[in-house]
């Protein structure tokens, strides 16, 4: 599905909630312990990550083509 995932990394504390609740294993913590997008093409835009991030650091939009 065509989705876009945005990170405000300066807000991310690496709690791993988004990683744990993503049903498609799209997200992972990187070596510095921040959320990173590892399988963007698998994202189904379910919004679980955005809904549950307690730090408002991850956002998911459906892609809009101009």
């Amino acid at each position: 599905m065509d989705t876009e995932i945005f990170l405000k990394s300066e807000r991310c504390k690496g709690c791993g909630i988004c990683v744990a609740f993503c049903p498609k294993k799209v997200l992972q913590l990187d070596t510095l312990g921040h959320c990173s997008v590892v399988r963007p093409d698998d994202c189904i835009a379910c919004g679980q990550c955005e809904l549950r991030c307690p730090d408002y650091a991850i956002f998911v939009d459906k892609k809009v083509y101009a």
Partner: peptide, 28 residues
Amino acid sequence: MQERTYEKYFRQNRLPHIWCPGCGNGTV
């Protein structure tokens, strides 16, 4: 990205908040 409408209710210069990683307070 379209900025989320709830962001206007936060003092942006105060974020990120002080709560521990994964603390539920941010969600509430």
